[in-house]
Design a protein around this nucleic acid. Sequence first.
DNA 1: TCCCGGAGGTTATCT
DNA 2: AGATAACCTCCGGGA
Length: 422
Amino acid sequence: MAKSSSLADKSPPRTPKKRKAKKNIDPSPSPRKSPKKSVPKKVIYASDIEQISPQNKWIDLQVPPQELRPSATLTTGQSFSWMVVMDSITDQSASSAWGRHNETMWIAPIGNQIITIKETPSTTMYRVVHGDEENITPFLVDYFQLETPLDPLYSKWSERDERLAKIANVIPGVRIIRQDPVECLFSFICSSNNNIPRITKMLSSFRSTYGTKILNLPVRHFEDGELSEPLNDQEMEIFSFPTLDQLQGATEQELRDMGLGYRADYIVKTRDLLMEFGGKEFLMDLRSKDAETVQEELIKFRGIGRKVADCVALFSLDQTEAIPVDVHVQRIASRDYDPTLSQAKSLTPTIYKRVGDLFRDRFDYAGWTHSLLFVAELPSFRDVLPVDIVEQMDAFKEEEIQRKAKEKAAKEARKALSPKKK
DNA sequence: TCCCGGAGGTTATCT
DNA sequence: AGATAACCTCCGGGA
């Protein structure tokens, strides 16, 4: 029986081109890579933002820390839209929200609005910086899924897992955000084999190339603890995330030139297939489908494997049991639930499911649980965790280094022994 | 200074 | 089913 499916017919086998022999074929060897001349960091400063649409007041979402902590929710890598707003000089502001929990203020374009969020000790506030104030509260209640009480989930998880209980105790309010599926889909295609700073950069140029300009935000320089005056000559342009329609003209070459790399091809093909399937509506309909169907449908898109599919499912399609398994999640599972997992050579489909099941078997809303455990691993949360938890993490990390070194040595030895086979 | 491997994966090919 | 190489690009650590 022919092994080629109709899908395979459409995508010709990749030409077995070999890797380019030469490594650095960069045509322009970066004229002068200015040697670490400390570039002043551009920051968004709170008092500058306050002056935009001053008639719009801060509104209290009336949600206690146990139910929502933006500092632990916007920093987990589930959304690439939120930017840190610096609200004091002591704040060592980063430009992206990734991995930071000491911040208290953020700003993001959501749809065609720009919203800023402020975390206080007792609640979370928001202010509409740009756009219609109407109905933003219900929108944010939906966005943060506040109708799903988090505290009872924390309690149930904690009963089930002593270690998690210790973490839950010190990291309240980690939630899954309910994002726009189209944005989520394209964003996570960009995340493959990639790191957060670069993903953020790629998406930023993606937005500015195809999205709609919403507003200019004033920026300042921050260097050596000094904050400059607002830079009148440069502002940060904020764009909406492009709609499917706005992406119609995008070509692979164009996307490559933007620095998306081989993902350029994925974006174009996914756009086309999504149009064929019915566009955004197709994705919205998946919200009411079961987990397997959602996986199955998402994996049909180019550039979307299990991991990315589960990201999209969890972060935008209401699939509360979806667990995006990456090397980090596998580490957690291996360390805390099933040591035999460390034997696994690679993240095969079987292992992938096994890892996810370890969470799903223990916890309701396992995708949400995994997020809390994932957050706990971020370096910036070390100082709030109990000592024994941190020690255990470090010990395992050390073990892992040893194991890897051993594996590497064994591999080298094998290679040296085996007669070079071409 | 240069070079290499890894970074929150996916795809195709080969056992 | 599992293992492996290739893939854009950027960046930090080791030689």
